[in-house]
């Protein structure tokens, strides 16, 4: 079975390392915060100006002055700090934020990513994504493996306007976990019940199956 969004978030949470400063994008990446493993201490950075972001507030305690980058009401953990947008991106560009998790419309086997624009159809803007992907040491992209028409989103080359070039290192899709290397996508883990053949058939970009490939634990 392909992973659901919570299982994808849970799998990504296992990539977190103790002491990391982490920026989680909008959507599935936000769910990663719910699955931070026991004994791992990370600080969440939200690019609208929070370090030390806490969970959603209890009902009735929402504060219009306290939101995350997805405009959702949030809370502050003890020791949290607020700063302006320029300081926030200073942290990001200077690589103080060690891991970025974000979604994508397309990823290519050379590490290119596209996630901000479909010409003539949808233009929401890049928000902080271009700054994040241009600077993060580690970028994990979480995405569905195929689009609604069943076409691969893991491509030889992106067809949509790019967000960043050669920057993605790892992809977690609903079908598997992949590193991006000079040889292309390297399949490390497949979702339970999803065959390597199915993943090969649904991946347009260059795909290498790691000799150590295994079934994902979810």
């Amino acid at each position: 079975m392909p992973l659901d969004k919570h299982q994808m978030a849970k799998r990504i949470a296992r990539e977190l390392k103790d002491g990391f400063y982490v920026n989680l994008g909008i959507g599935i990446p936000t769910l990663v915060a719910n699955y931070i493993p026991e004994g791992i201490d990370v600080e969440l950075q939200s690019e609208n100006g929070i370090l030390g972001m806490g969970p959603f507030p209890y009902e009735g305690e929402e504060d219009a002055d306290l939101i995350n980058a997805g405009k959702q009401t949030v809370t502050l953990k003890p020791g949290a700090v607020i700063f302006d947008s320029a300081t926030s991106f200073a942290m990001i560009r200077s690589q103080k934020v060690q891991l970025t998790v974000l979604g994508a419309m397309e990823v290519a086997d050379n590490g290119d990513i596209a996630n901000w624009k479909i010409p003539g159809k949808m233009v929401k803007g890049m928000g902080g994504a271009m700054d994040l992907v241009a600077s993060a040491q580690n970028i994990i992209v979480v995405m569905m493996h195929t689009n609604k028409a069943g076409e691969s989103k893991l491509l030889k080359r992106c067809t949509l306007p790019l967000t960043g070039v050669g920057c993605v290192k790892k992809v977690v899709s609903d079908l598997g976990v992949f590193d991006i290397t000079p040889e292309g996508f390297v399949l490390l883990e497949h979702a339970p019940g999803v065959s390597v053949e199915e993943i090969k058939a649904k991946t347009e970009g260059r795909l290498v199956v790691a000799s150590t490939v295994k079934e994902m634990v979810v």
């Binding site: 969970p55 507030p57 209890y58 009902e59 219009a64 939101i67 405009k71 959702q72 009401t73």
Partner: peptide, 12 residues
Amino acid sequence: EKRIEQRTTRKR
């Protein structure tokens, strides 16, 4: 008015 765009909460 300080309108909230995405009111997200958790249960007690």
